[in-house]
Nucleic acid binder design. Structure first.
Length: 747
DNA sequence: CACCCTCGAGTTCA
DNA sequence: CTCGAGGGTG
């Protein structure tokens, strides 16, 4: 490059004129570029700008002496005009070998230590799920930014990369080599990604399936032919991108001895490096790093698809060398993929206990984050539209919070034209009633046939048996379905939940259930093509002698269910209230109502204002309670249950208006339980808190006084730590219950 | 009017 | 367990 700075003698008489013209053009171009990149102003059109560059280039071609290192044709400005043109990396961008388990990782690391002949210092860093980028700095100036491409040749994205905050177009400090390629990862921070999608959705634009796609899409935008508004939007997207650098391409003789020192150097040059990189001195510590971020993947601002572990000492890098594909001194530990593609086979609508019609995705079974997923809720028709999925699409799915399957969106490129749009049915799929919003403006559609829609009755019966209500063993999803399905040609054992406590063995014995295949959901067929049926409540008592008909008796499940129903009749009043399925009355509101009024009769007799006066109950819940008692078949439930011996009162309660038992060691405290607590069931721990006069809340907030955490604690514990709320283990909790908050805080 | 909280739904695991 | 929706409270 130095030779271009040697000024040749001006033999040509046109040279002086050319030099004057070149200087004028250079000044103009620099000025325009400063306006464009520095102040976001386009003083001329792109075509005019290109024309200026071309004139300068042709002058320089004619008079090579004019081509100085500082010429705009040699730098960013030139590159920006050829977005996506191929760029040959000075040094090949290698990929990394992968391992998928701690055992594999430790085997790899042990091999490296054996080859090195001594223990190695390791540099652990997060593997960002973004786009690999190579930044080329000539004499400290950014001359090109290119994607990885095939490792040899990438695409020029300089124009867009320059808009990413934090990427200097000129390196700070001194001591940079004449030519250096800095390698890093461009990504969309998760929070910004969600904002972006919300905006895209509001603007009627496509939403991105994940932050990686958003980063890739943003970086590959072209400015040409865009309106001013679109250009503005594009720039805003680019400014939300971020980049972290994690290596250097070509640097034969670095002034440092370790990769971690390279990072410090890069930082001193003004390049952004990750705060999560960490050097450790043992393989076990590296494994710990991997496991730690496996559990806290979501605590980082960007998505992570793994961890990269590098040998820290640079001397060992050259000693260990590289294969043609990847260096031997680094490895990528890949976490199980969180996002996976699968086929959206159908969108089906289900009806829940409240009558709400919910579309859900039926998918080809796919393994995500450790389990097989085949269904995921789509919430309502607006969400289906917003996600833009068509039946037959290949879709991207993930487990939100590592638990709940979620459809992110379609892979539009894989469409073949046979996909069809989902149409929300206008009738209930189970009973045929016309679906309608409960009130004006509601998005959710509901089946109005609350009394006899099979889906709703089934859902309510299941809810009655659930832990938060009467907690009836033997009354779960399967029994609820069996009890509410019609028995050909008779009616179902339960037409509504009113008959629940009148059930007898005679009702249970004849019940048959069609066995369905777990994979397909279709009825199972036996060898003869008959559907397989089982009788969950009946079993053969005495094997029949060959000549005599079989005799049947109740199964253990039948005995259990009847015994549990008997036990349930005298459970707490608040559980009875929850079991009645009154809108907005869950465990918390039910407890408040029960404690205040003491009996269902008192609740029923109370007027709206009296109900709303109860702490935790407002006008809406009060209305819901009043309206519930105005429906005949609701009243019938109460009457038939009462006739069957159900107790709807708290024994010994003095009557309406009884003040909540004041005092207790926990009075005024709000406590949250998370994970499993030794010596307590989850319910038991909450009961103990209530018994002590405290409040057992479901989520952690700054008003929470204590968090009781045990093994298996999740996000609630993390939140408590973040908020600085005192955290108790099982022993601390016991002390709190026995001696009060002062004693617990000391420990 | 914030904020915090509860409700309701779907889902999978031991 | 988590999310969105919507209710309740200070």
């Amino acid at each position: 490059m130095v030779e271009t700075e040697v000024i040749e003698p001006a033999a040509d008489p046109g040279f002086d004129a050319a030099r004057a013209e070149a200087e004028r053009l250079t000044a103009l171009i620099l000025e325009l570029r400063e306006a464009y990149y520095g102040r976001d102003e386009s003083l001329v059109s792109d075509a005019e700008y290109d024309e200026l560059i071309r004139r300068l280039e042709s002058l320089e071609a004619e008079f090579p002496a004019l081509r100085s290192q500082d010429s705009p044709t040699q730098r960013v400005g030139a590159a920006t005009r050829s977005l996506f043109s191929p760029v040959v990396h000075a040094e090949r961008m290698l990929s990394l070998d992968n391992v998928f388990s701690i055992a594999e990782f430790e085997a790899w690391a042990a091999r490296v230590e054996r080859d090195a002949g001594r223990p190695v210092r390791w540099l652990c860093e997060l593997k960002i799920d973004g786009l690999a980028i190579s930044l080329r700095y000539d004499r400290g100036r950014l001359t090109s930014a290119a994607t990885r491409g095939d490792g040899v040749t990438g695409e020029d994205v300089t124009e867009n990369v320059l808009r990413i905050p934090g990427i200097p177009d000129r390196l700070a400090g001194t001591g940079h080599p004449p030519l250096v390629e800095v390698r890093g990862e461009v990504y969309f921070p998760v929070a910004a990604f969600h904002e972006l999608n919300a905006e895209q959705e509001a603007a009627g634009e496509r939403v991105f399936a994940n932050p990686r796609n958003a980063a890739s899409g943003s970086l590959r935008q072209k400015s040409e032919g865009k309106s001013a508004a679109a250009l503005d939007l594009m720039r805003r997207r680019l400014t939300r991108l971020k980049m972290l650098v994690h290596g250097i391409g070509a640097w034969p003789d670095p002034p440092v001895a370790a990769q971690s020192e390279v990072y410090a150097l890069l930082e001193s040059w003004g390049l952004p490096t990750s705060a999560h990189a960490k050097t450790v001195t043992s393989i076990a510590a590296a494994s710990e790093y991997i496991e730690h971020f496996g559990e806290h993947r979501h605590a980082v601002e960007h998505e992570i698809d793994g961890v990269v572990v590098k040998v820290d000492e640079l001397a060992l890098h050259s000693e260990l060398g590289s294969t043609s594909r990847a260096p031997r001194w680094a490895i990528a530990y890949k976490y199980p993929p969180e996002q996976v593609q699968t086929k959206l086979l159908d969108i089906v609508v289900s009806v829940g206990r409240t009558g709400r019609a919910t579309p859900f995705a039926v998918m080809a079974p796919a393994r995500v984050a450790g389990s097989v997923v085949r269904q995921a809720t789509l919430h309502n028709q607006d969400v289906v539209k917003a996600k833009g999925v068509l039946i037959g699409d290949t879709v991207v799915i993930r487990k939100a919070g590592d638990v709940i399957p979620e459809v992110l969106g379609p892979v539009v490129e894989l469409r073949d034209g046979t996909e069809r749009a989902f149409v929300m049915p206008s009738e209930c799929p189970e009973c045929g009633s016309t679906l309608a919003p409960a009130k004006e403006g509601d998005i959710d559609l509901r089946c109005p046939n609350a009394r006899s829609c099979p889906a709703q009755v089934r859902g309510r019966v299941e809810h009655i048996g659930s832990r938060g209500a009467l907690d009836i063993e033997g009354l779960g999803e399967v029994s609820a379905a069996a009890l509410t399905q019609p028995l050909v040609p008779e009616r179902p054992p339960l037409e509504t939940e009113a008959g629940l406590f009148d059930l007898t063995l005679d009702d249970l014995l004849p019940i048959e259930v069609v066995v369905r295949d777990a994979e397909t959901g279709l009825p199972k067929l036996d060898a003869d093509g008959e559907t397989v049926r089982v009788t969950p409540f009946r079993k053969v008592v005495r094997p029949a002698r060959k000549t005599q008909p079989a005799e049947f008796g109740p199964s253990a499940a039948a005995e259990l269910l009847l015994a549990e129903l008997e036990k349930a009749k005298t459970k707490d009043l608040w559980r009875m209230l929850v079991a009645l399925n009154i809108r907005h009355v869950g465990p918390v509101a039910a407890r408040a109502l029960a404690a205040w009024f003491g009996s269902l009769d008192a609740i029923r007799a109370a007027d709206r204002a009296e109900l709303a006066a109860v702490e935790g109950v407002g006008p809406i819940i009060a209305d819901a309670v009043k309206e519930w008692f105005e429906v005949d078949w609701h009243v019938e439930i109460v009457e038939r249950w009462a006739a069957a011996g159900v107790r709807f009162a708290i024994p010994g309660h003095p009557g309406p208006g009884a003040a909540a038992a004041a005092g207790g060691v926990l009075a005024g405290l709000t406590i949250v339980v998370t994970g499993s607590i030794e010596g307590f069931s989850r319910e038991g721990a909450e009961e103990a808190i209530l018994a002590g006069g405290g409040k057992a809340a479901g989520s952690v907030s700054k008003r929470t006084d204590f968090v009781v955490a045990g093994p298996g604690a999740g996000s609630k514990l993390a939140k408590a730590e973040a908020l600085g709320i005192p955290i108790l283990d099982a022993d601390g909790f016991k002390r709190l219950l026995a001696e009060g908050p002062a004693a617990a805080k000391e420990a």
